[in-house]
Design a binder for these strands. Structure first.
Length: 214
DNA sequence: GTTCGGATTATCT
DNA sequence: GATAATCCGAACC
């Protein structure tokens, strides 16, 4: 397989865009099934992508940790939109990216917490200003910096069109490894609900592989 | 390897 | 003025 063939295969995988029906399900289901999918950003012609290895679900109701818990505000408006849109917001100076799930106005979402660098790794290093591969995208703020995901244009973005920002399913599914579940990170409220999903063996997680809900 | 404190900034009360 | 779905580095096993 020559270089051109490899590049072609990469583009084909990147282009296998997840449809709206994928997102139109409960956030726990989407969070679990997002593991192993690709998050892709085509920013000014330079494509970066990572394999999702860690997610967190935020529920439509009865979830005090969710940004939508106290109703709609200027910031969280995208959560109330249709499934398959992005919800991008800023926390302590860092961006975080979510996908909106379930039906419109349900305001549930899945936070993408960590990815494994897959395409455009050189660009990611430049944007993050660090050499260590395992700390390149191992956190919600870090991966947004590495993929140049910001809220100005991408908050509310339609992820199902395969333009700029989208998610795709690699068909050449390499074995994912065991999926583990734990409480959500940095959310002491609302008890320790088992809403964080991650690939147990991945070196690219935001935290060590603690399993609170084996 | 893990735990802690400080930096930091948009958002909401 | 308080809060927060974070990050980084120092300190300490």
């Amino acid at each position: 397989m020559n270089l051109a063939t490899v590049a072609c295969e990469q583009m084909r995988v990147l282009r296998n865009v997840l449809p709206a029906s994928f997102y139109d399900r409960p956030p726990q289901t989407v969070a679990r099934e997002l593991l192993g999918k690709l998050l892709v950003h085509d920013h000014q012609g330079s494509v970066t992508a990572g394999i999702i290895v860690e997610t967190e679900a935020y529920l439509a109701s009865n979830d005090p940790a969710s940004h939508s818990y106290r109703g709609r505000t200027a910031r969280n408006g995208s959560m109330f939109g249709p499934p398959g849109r992005a919800y991008v917001y800023i926390l302590r100076g860092y961006h975080c990216v979510n996908v909106v799930t379930e039906g419109e106005n349900m305001a549930s979402a899945v936070l993408i917490r960590a990815v494994e660098p897959w395409t455009g790794i050189d660009v990611m290093h430049t944007r993050r200003c660090i050499a260590d591969l395992t700390r390149l995208t191992s956190g919600p703020g870090k991966l947004c910096q590495a993929l140049a995901i910001t809220c100005e244009v991408l908050d509310g973005w339609d992820l199902t069109q395969g333009q700029r920002l989208w998610l795709s399913a690699p068909e050449t599914a390499k074995p994912l490894g065991a999926i583990a579940v734990s409480g959500r990170i940095g959310v002491p409220r609302a008890g320790e609900l088992p809403l964080r999903f991650y690939v147990r063996s991945s070196p690219f997680l935001s935290r060590g592989p603690h399993v609170r809900f084996p």
